[in-house]
Design a protein around this nucleic acid. Structure first.
Lengths: 116, 116
DNA sequence: CCCAAGGCTTCAGTAAGTGAAGCCATGGCG
DNA sequence: CGCCATGGCTTCACTTACTGAAGCCTTGGG
């Protein structure tokens, strides 16, 4: 990996941050109010706890999410988006719009026109 | 991978399409007018030809890019975004905006406030 | 005693991406 | 004629990301 393309390119910089398979889905879930590990695990059905843990840690490192521990029993941990993380929400909204069009078949005419 | 999360979720759908590490950078380059294999290879400095080839093929499968072959010598191949691909450009623009803010340090205060 | 809850970590295995090298065709140069 | 350059890949052996199942840790309650 060494130098992820050009580090002075803004698009590359963002790509580095959101590169993981689950990252943007995770941002979406945090934006929707899911805060706890097990909530995220359930919402992102299919993610392994290891991957979730690694992604959360990486995003925390990058200052995109914050981790709050509550010393209860059993211990509770909550994750939240920082300002830096909230700034990614428009991206998720664009993805939602795009996916919506895709699922509605609006963009499907770009495939084979399928014998109108 | 089997069932990429929930396939009826628009955000997941888009995530599936743009999941690869290089996909959005590739969309950006195609949007900027880079059309040929070697141009893309140069522009996405660091990508391996294998990955570029695989990504282009996958995106073609999905109807996001079109491939045009010109029977010259040496043979020329050009790639272009379809409507479905162009619809991803706003996403890239959001990434550019976000990355710009990041690089300018505007969002950096979300990290440790660093002893004001 | 022992189990449940919540938040992880460990392990062995699969998928995605890497870096270097090679392949194919052919027009042009010596 | 020999052979190199060009463009678009493919092959190989390898590292990194992610998976799925299992296990760990603490402590309050049955």
């Amino acid at each position: 990996m060494s130098a992820e393309s050009n580090s002075t390119c803004p698009v590359c910089k963002t790509a580095e941050v959101v590169c993981g398979k689950w990252t943007l889905l995770l941002i979406r879930d945090l934006a929707e109010g899911n805060a706890r590990f097990c909530e995220l695990e359930r919402s992102l059905e299919g993610i392994s706890p290891r991957t979730l843990s690694l992604r959360l840690r990486a995003l925390e490192e990058e200052g995109v999410v914050e981790r709050h521990t509550y010393p209860e029993v059993p211990p509770r941990v909550e994750y939240a988006l920082t300002a830096k993380g909230k700034a990614l929400v428009p991206l998720v909204e664009d993805m939602r719009r795009y996916g919506m069009r895709w699922l509605l078949g609006d963009a499907a005419d770009a495939r084979q026109p399928a014998a109108v």
